[in-house]
Amino acid sequence: MPIDTEPALAIAEPTGARPLSDLEAGDEKARSRLGLLLALPGIVYLTVFFVIPLGFVVVTSFATRTRTGRTAYESWNTDAYSKIISSDLIRTVAWRSLGLGIITTLICLALAFPLSYFISTRKPVVRNLLLIGVMIPFWSNFLVRTYAWRVLLDSNGLGTRLLGALGLGDGRILFTQKAVVLGMVYGFLPFMVLPLYAALERIDWSLVEASRDLYASGWGAFRRVVWPLSRPGVIAGSILVFVPSFGAYITPALLGGGKDPLLGSYIVGQFLQARNWPLGSALSVVVLVVMLAGTIVYFRTGGRTL
């Protein structure tokens, strides 16, 4: 029963037109009109509340911040983008976001691969239970899950004592970049597990058995068969972890202590404190471009599972 083993959010392959009956097969035109009619409410809603707001961001990124902190749309310019390129502070923030995003992605991959491999080689019943076990934290409140680390990493917290006992200094990492990475790994790990699982679950294990029959070692079978076949999952998972890490706002705000801002916090600051909306918009456009590039790669590699 394939439905049992798919993650709940398996995005369907586009099946295209599947005529309801042979009787109707003739009037393709009428069907196409009906299809558009059904889509119309959604199209109108997303145009007004998603596409147009997106346009507002792009337009504002070319506007000017006046001395009083208002945004003037009269003369278009690319000052905000020049500032992004020339400002040392923004460059530092961007590189830091990039670095922490990459570290988070790599740690997630290292944790998620063995786990996904384990899950995908269980019996179907166990597999489903374990998957639900991964999906519950995935969908439950992100803010509260991040806050839980504040309790754990408090100066007397259990996590601090555990890290201390493991010999990592005095274990006090709250309000440092280490805590931010830990929080992001915790928050985004399921984004890596689910696509990796989906890729591993699709693997035809008889290929692995065949390689073993041909005297491949366990490691050889993994490196030559399992790893190449799981690559789409690795790419999809990496993008799904990297994109939210790169634009993260809640995790650095709660666990980072605000000393070393990341891109997400910096953008929020431009809107809520500095009142430099053009600069904030231009940085949002940068984040959106990174996201779009990731998404295109994701779909090119055949990723279809969230």
Partner: peptide, 22 residues
């Protein structure tokens, strides 16, 4: 439409928040 429908899921919260605030 299919592509646009995916965007709100993957877009970082901060970007969507900025869009709607503006």
């Amino acid at each position: 439409f299919d592509a646009i429908l995916y965007l709100p899921i993957i877009i970082p919260d901060v970007a969507m928040a900025v869009m709607l605030l503006l």
